[in-house]
Design a protein around this nucleic acid. Sequence first.
DNA 1: ATAACATATGAACAATTGTTCATATGTTAT
DNA 2: ATAACATATGAACAATTGTTCATATGTTAT
Lengths: 125, 125
Amino acid sequence: MPEEKKKKKVSGVCSQPLIHEDIVERVQKKMPDENKLYDLAELFKVFGDSTRIKIIWALFESEMCVCDIAYLLNMTQSAISHQLRVLKAARLVRYRREGKTIYYSLDDSHVQQIFEMGMEHILEG
Amino acid sequence: MPEEKKKKKVSGVCSQPLIHEDIVERVQKKMPDENKLYDLAELFKVFGDSTRIKIIWALFESEMCVCDIAYLLNMTQSAISHQLRVLKAARLVRYRREGKTIYYSLDDSHVQQIFEMGMEHILEG
DNA sequence: ATAACATATGAACAATTGTTCATATGTTAT
DNA sequence: ATAACATATGAACAATTGTTCATATGTTAT
C-alpha cells in the first residue's frame, strides 16, 4: 500500500550501544547458567503438547498400560508410544513390565504443582 | 535387513476392546475439560523456548525495554519483539510506553513458582 | 518353533515454529 | 513537515515436531 518513501537511513534498530546499561548489567549478573535455562525450556517443551499433557494428567490418577492410554485418549498405540518415549526421556514417567503389558506411571513430584500453577494462570482469564 | 518373514496376521495393536476397563473408566471421569488441557499445553508451549525463558527470567529481575533485552540476550530487536508478542498473548508480560521506549515487565504471579518447580526437576538429574 | 499380542521404532509427511529481512508504525525533537 | 529512533509486523525460509504407516522386538502360551 505505501508508495516509495524517500527515507534516507534505515538507522534505528537499537542503535544505541545500550540504553540502560546499569539495568542490563545487573540483570546479566543474575541470569542463571545458559545451559540450565536451555534445559528448563526443554522440560516445558515436553509439557507443551496436549497429548502429553493428557497422558500426564491421566497418570496422576492411576498407572496404565499403553493400550489403556491409547483407548482413553482415542489415539493410536503408536502415537502414544512415541509420546511416552518423550516423557521417559524427560524422566517424567517410569514403567514396569508385567508379561506382555507395560505399565506407565508418573515419576515426578513436581509436575502436579507445576500443573496446578499453570491451571491457576489459565483460569484467571 | 530382515528377509521376508512369513507372518500371517498383523493382528495385535490394541486388539482388545479394552484391557483395564475399570481403570480407564475411573480415569476418564477425573480428566479435566478437553479445552482446559489444551490451554494448559498452550501455556507450557510458551515456556518451551529458551529465548522466551530467558526473557521471562530477565524480567524477574527488572522491567526492561526491548533494546535492553535484545542486547542482554545478544539477539535481534525483531526476534525479541516477536517473542514478546507471544508472551503478551499469553498474558505473561505487560508493557508501558515512555516516549519512544516501551518497557516490558512480568505480569504473573505463578510463573516464578512454575519455574522453580521446573528447576527442581532439572537439578535432580 | 510358532502364533498371538503388547509395545517400540524408523521413515515419511504435513503442520508448526523461530529467526531474519525489509519495512511499517508511533513518538519526539527540530 | 521531516529526520531519527524504538518498536512492531508480514513474508519467507529453515528447522523442529507430532502422527501415521509399516514393521521390528519382546513375552507368553501352545
